[in-house]
Design a protein around this nucleic acid. Sequence first.
DNA 1: CAGTATATTGTAACTTTTTACAATAAAGGA
DNA 2: TCCTTTATTGTAAAAAGTTACAATATACTG
Lengths: 142, 142
Amino acid sequence: MSCASEYAPQLRARGYRVTPQRMAILHVLRHEGTHLSPAEVYRKARKDFPGLTEPTVYRTLEFLADNGVVRSSQSSKGHLTYEIAGEDHHHVVCRICGSEIEVEHALLENVYKKIESTSGYMRIDSHVTFFGVCPKCQRKKL
Amino acid sequence: MSCASEYAPQLRARGYRVTPQRMAILHVLRHEGTHLSPAEVYRKARKDFPGLTEPTVYRTLEFLADNGVVRSSQSSKGHLTYEIAGEDHHHVVCRICGSEIEVEHALLENVYKKIESTSGYMRIDSHVTFFGVCPKCQRKKL
DNA sequence: CAGTATATTGTAACTTTTTACAATAAAGGA
DNA sequence: TCCTTTATTGTAAAAAGTTACAATATACTG
């Protein structure tokens, strides 16, 4: 009984099915603290479920993101990475070295509201990735 | 004498070279008002410069983005698109239909400053893409 | 516990994006 | 104008991501 099965009832309730592939992928994301690329998820989840294939990984990650179970963000090269959806937060990624930190959502709350009221677009809930230069790389550049 | 050669001096001044490939790509972005995918840029720029290859397009777009000449943003599927860097702005993309609008930078100015002061990351100047649901799709869902 | 509907998967082929490296050509100096 | 340096390109191959569709297996029903 993996911790990933916590998510089973909410998926079934929405008419989706709980499969070992989904559980294996969820299990991986659940145990990594941080975000992973699809390739990393594939490599790790295959240990639980050797028959797993790449298209399934991509589809499942997108599926889980659509259902709010995982969250996607951008790597420093613009690729998608995924992590378990927990406390709402955003990332700041160093465009030189790729190092990153989290920023709590409170900082953006007002912006979201303002964008919703001025644009008419609703349910803006995306995770945002900012790019900057980290303290370490700022020193290097001098 | 293409309008794209405006950018030539600033590139040369930084030790980079001005090539017909770069000019052709810049020319395309300069004349499309909006952002394009690398594949679209490739297709269009080939008309100016038939020998152009894909790796060059990808490398050039990344190069131009690094140098602030173009700006990258995310499509609704998470892929990178590029546009000429003009007035600072951000995008809101509809996660249902992909339609999008621009949001002026002023709305985010304070957030950028706050992130810089709390995180220590500097020169945060990235373009941000928010995802939400556009007015048209909100009505469909009811 | 079997039977059924259909959500989900694997397969195979394809498109997109990236990499390494040798060949080329832009820019500056003689 | 030619020479030299080296940034930039094309080539070829690999890696990453996507698609269409037939086969499978989950979850519901009786």
